[in-house]
Structures are given as structure tokens and as C-alpha cells.
Design a protein around this nucleic acid. Structure first.
Length: 295
DNA sequence: TGCCCCCTGCAG
DNA sequence: CTGCAGGGGGCA
């Protein structure tokens, strides 16, 4: 579920909460959700939290990292060890672990990080970080350790961090695929998923099925600016929680209150153009647009 | 480049 | 019951 803004929301929160903590041990409740030898990170301190597109990287002091992908239904929720103080946040978290909890990271201070994932598409993997001093032969491990580089080297540039309008043109041009599929193709542009692709195309006034190579320069400029805008607003509103997404405290984001066309089939277009939002299927994914405003 | 699949659960 | 869900890997 999470796209770039949702994962970025978690990265910001996690970096405030878990950097400096030491992993005591890890409970793997579903083996499909965790890859690697968990013992390699026991007793290791967390030194940073990074994000590459929709992948979170929790860096450890020994040159290993925990890579996390939430896919469609993953949640990361941090719970503080029993406190006497009752905050609103505690009330939200009364029942964890729950039936969808797949992994629990236990820290030496007693706090815990819960990885919930209803559909079991998401994963946590132990990886060797770039520039790490970690030597795999020092460990008797039955698992081959993946390099972080292998996980991320197919990712295209991220719109906000890596792209200008010129580079955006360069990356995207030359294909006749529908523009929406190109926006969602992680090897072309990384971080954009179904919600933000739909809404960016609405803001840009471009029909999602438009062949990419017939877009004009001015349309490309508009699209790039729209993309940046929906992603930036997405982070500002702490992600979209139409379904599963929760922030690190278990709270919903606000983006779903600001959808332009996503999930609005049959509703009046918010431009008051008189059109109603249509839903079609593109690349197997639900696609929403205003037939009046998006040509 | 497009289609099926991985899974669980919910709405219609 | 069918179809669908913020993703993406593997296969023709």
C-alpha cells in the first residue's frame, strides 16, 4: 500500500524513535515475512534510517541493515514499554500483537517494533549495506547475505530527490506505453504508486491512457510539477490511509481526505466541470480520471 | 510489454 | 459468490 509519501512518513518517525536503540532479539511469527539470519543483528545498535523509493533501510553498527518493504498491506508500529502515563497513542495500541503481526523487533530498552502485514506480500531482509565493513565469511551463516545494492540498483530516479523537469523528460520519453504505467514503473521513476499516479495525472489534465510519446512539452512540465505536488502534499498529510496504512504510532494519515480522483468513481469532478469520475483498468490496476478534464 | 501470481479480507 | 485492494517478481 504505501507509496513514497507513506514510507517517507515512517522514515522520519522511525529515525526519531529508534536510532541509538539496540536490537535485543526478533520474533518471527511468519517465516515468509523475514529473510536472513536474525541472530546477525542481535545486540547491534541502530545508527540510521534511510529510504530508497518504497524501501526502508534500518542501518546497524556492524555494516548490516534491515531492509523493509511494506508492499500492499504492511504496517510498522512502534510500541513503548508499559508506561503509567496514558496517552492517546497508547489507547490506539492496546491490541498488539494482533493476528496480522508477522515480525516483532524487540529492543533492549523494552520497546518493540511490530511488523503487521495482512496479505503477507511485504518483507524484512537482512542485507549488507553499501560501504559496509561487514565480512560475511566472519559468520557461520546458512544464509547468503544479499547486498543492499542488489535490492535498489533497478530503481529509477525519485521525482523529488533526483529529478528536474529536464531529467524527467529524459527518463520518460520515447515509449508508447500509457503514461500512468510509466509513472508507476519503478525502473523508470521510483516511489510513485497507484494513488499518486492517478491524482498527479488529474492535476496535470492528462488522460492516464495517453501514450507517453505524444505528450507535449508543456504537458510534461505540468505533469512533473503535479507529481512533485501530490508527493509533497502526501508527506505533509502523513500518507494515505484509505485501507491499511498507519504511521509509526498506529494513526491514520490524512491524504484520503484530499484525493482528487483516486477512489472517487461516480463522484462529481472537483473542478465543477460537470463530469463524473470514471474508473477504468490499466495494467490491471484501478484507474480513475475525469473524462472532461483529462484528455 | 502484458499477464498471472503471491495472500487475506472486505464490500457489493 | 465475485471482484477488488497504496506492489512488484517471474514468466511467455
Amino acid at each position: 500500500m504505501p507509496e513514497l509519501p507513506e514510507v517517507e512518513t515512517l522514515r522520519i518517525q522511525l529515525s526519531q524513535l529508534i536510532v541509538g536503540l539496540v536490537i535485543k532479539d526478533i520474533d518471527i511469527l511468519n517465516p515468509k515475512s523475514f529473510a536472513g539470519d536474525k541472530k546477525l543483528v542481535f545486540g547491534k545498535k541502530i545508527i540510521g534510517v534511510r529510504r530508497f523509493a518504497k524501501i526502508l533501510i534500518v542501518d546497524l553498527e556492524n555494516g548490516l541493515s534491515l531492509a523493509i518493504h511494506l508492499k500492499m498491506s504492511g504496517q510498522l508500529i512502534y510500541k513503548i514499554k508499559n508506561t503509567n502515563k496514558k496517552s492517546k497513542i497508547d489507547i490506539l495500541l492496546l491490541n498488539l500483537p494482533n493476528k496480522h503481526t508477522r515480525v516483532i523487533i524487540n529492543f533492549t530498552n523494552g520497546n518493540r517494533l511490530f511488523f503487521n502485514d495482512m496479505r503477507i506480500f511485504g518483507w524484512m531482509k537482512i542485507v549488507e549495506s553499501q560501504n559496509s565493513k561487514f565480512k560475511s565469511q566472519n559468520f557461520k551463516s546458512k544464509f547468503k547475505i544479499i547486498k543492499l545494492e542488489e535490492l535498489i540498483h533497478n530503481l529509477g530516479p525519485e521525482p523529488m530527490r533526483d529529478l528536474t523537469i529536464g531529467k524527467f523528460n529524459e527518463t520518460v520519453k520515447g515509449t508508447s506505453r500509457p503514461i500512468k504505467l510509466v509513472l508507476m514503473d519503478q525502473e523508470k521513476i521510483s516511489g510513485v504508486g497507484n494513488i499518486y499516479a492517478n491524482d498527479a495525472l488529474f492535476l496535470a489534465g492528462i488522460h492516464p491512457a495517453t501514450k507517453t510519446n505524444i505528450l507535449s512539452n508543456s504537458q510534461m512540465v505540468k505533469l512533473f510539477n503535479s507529481l512533485i505536488r501530490v508527493l509533497r502534499d502526501g508527506i505533509k498529510w502523513k500518507g494515505a490511509s484509505k485501507n491499511h496504512f498507519r504511521d509509526i504510532y498506529g494513526r491514520k494519515g490524512q491524504v484520503q481526505e484530499h484525493f482528487y480522483v483516486y477512489d472517487k468513481e461516480g463522484k462529481e469532478c472537483m473542478n465543477h466541470c460537470g463530469g463524473k469520475i470514471k474508473r477504468i483498468k490499466l495494467g490491471g490496476r484501478g484507474t480513475f480520471y475525469c473524462p472532461m478534464c483529462q484528455k
